[in-house]
Design a binder for these strands. Structure first.
Lengths: 229, 229
DNA sequence: CTTGTTAGTGGACATCGTCCACAAAATCGG
DNA sequence: CCGATTTTGTGGACGATGTCCACTAACAAG
């Protein structure tokens, strides 16, 4: 249940009552706490579930306190979205990192591509709320540019698209993917995987039986394979 | 501006004032009006913009009147989502219908597949709110089954997946697509197109320049082509 | 210690979804 | 044609949410 509520006891260990434990929290704690709380809400119910008043309640602070750290609810949501995206990126990196094999090895490169897609789908399946939130940024997010990461947060880590590009480059270097086919192929590949995640997650295919789901994934995998050569 | 507000004048043509023009609307008018109003709201701002009180305001009725036709806001939203999906399906049917060529002709079949994807992407681009709404059904929608359409609405028309299947069957009949590859290929194809629509619509690729967008679409088209053979 | 800034508090407001009791219009059995 | 019953809209209310304003305690610098 991972309580994100900051302890509202004063530093001497006793609960602060009459003297008002005000501003006893370390510097950026409230902001961080709000994002963490928002992340929990998003995990449980998607972007719409990240409601400001609930987040501040979890942090143990009054609603208006949030406005010292975010201009409005949308800005808080944006921060939560960024965190969710970072989570997805981390899972992808972990998944691809588990694949052993030298960088020159074509078979290893293939497995890494597979692992990226698998991690993406697994995340979408295991954390539907976070997945939806990662892509639900209120208005702008500045993305796509190879060297992005102009965001304030601590070390974004390679975004999904960058990780995919790296693996595809490896695939091209290993000769599995011709230079001609390499150009721009990250987009259709990302699209298939993302589309599959969305359609079988919140989408119309959401309640397909597991067997069907597996079948769909196999066909899709073969489809991508065909698209490479 | 397509006013969905029902006229609240009495049948004699004069405005009903003291006598209260109550229940002067034809049978299912309020319900239909609410869905129409909701559709306008969704068109302008996506599913979240479908707010019950605003819809009833447009119809010219008091908020509670909506509860005579829908159990709650989610049920209204579900009706709006169905309508939006129907709209998408209609555009797809129109797009594929514009393609001339006999049913046996392989080239025509190819063009029809192209037309389906184009219509899908065009709709997502021209009507982002409706597109998002079509796939934002609150909880269940019952889909996927070939002969679905157990919904109450007037003649659903072939759903997107069914239309895609029809074209793929044609492609298989024409020999463009081998029987072996045909099985289940509707899923990856739907996924690429849907994923592309989402990523370049509300997603991270949303503000890619038009040139990039065109490039992505070309590459994706080639990718699908490669996946067929 | 004074002073200015930062970060939290308290109270309020408009809006939203929803509930309850009521009344009028439409419908229907006789 | 009439009276009972079911539909369908009205009025008023409640709790929750996002956001605004004025106020004040805590901290940092001089």
């Amino acid at each position: 249940m991972l309580s994100t509520k900051l302890s509202s006891v004063t530093s001497d260990g006793s609960a602060g009552e009459a003297t008002e434990a005000r501003r006893r929290r370390p510097r950026g704690a409230v902001r961080e706490g709000l994002v963490a709380a928002g992340l929990e809400l998003a995990r449980a119910g998607g972007p719409d579930a990240v409601v400001l008043r609930e987040a501040v309640r979890m942090v143990g602070v009054v609603p208006n306190a949030a406005y010292r750290h975010f201009a409005n609810r949308d800005e808080l949501l944006a921060a939560v979205c960024t965190a969710a995206m970072r989570e997805l990126a981390a899972r992808m990196a972990a998944g691809v990192g588990r694949v052993r094999g030298q960088r020159g090895d074509p078979a290893a490169a293939r497995r890494r591509l597979q692992a990226i897609g698998r991690a993406y789908l697994d995340f979408a399946r295991a954390e539907p709320g976070l997945f939806a939130t990662a892509f639900a940024v209120p208005h702008q997010h500045a993305y796509g540019a190879p060297g992005a990461g102009a965001d304030g947060g601590a070390e974004p880590g390679p975004l999904p698209l960058d990780q995919l590009r790296a693996v595809l480059d490896e695939l091209a270097d290993a000769g599995v993917l011709s230079r001609r086919r390499r150009a721009g192929i990250e987009y259709p590949i990302w699209s298939v995987v993302h589309g599959l995640a969305v359609l079988t997650g919140q989408g119309p295919l959401r309640d397909a039986p597991d067997a069907t789901r597996r079948h769909i994934e196999e066909v899709t995998s073969a489809f991508i394979e065909a698209g490479l050569s």
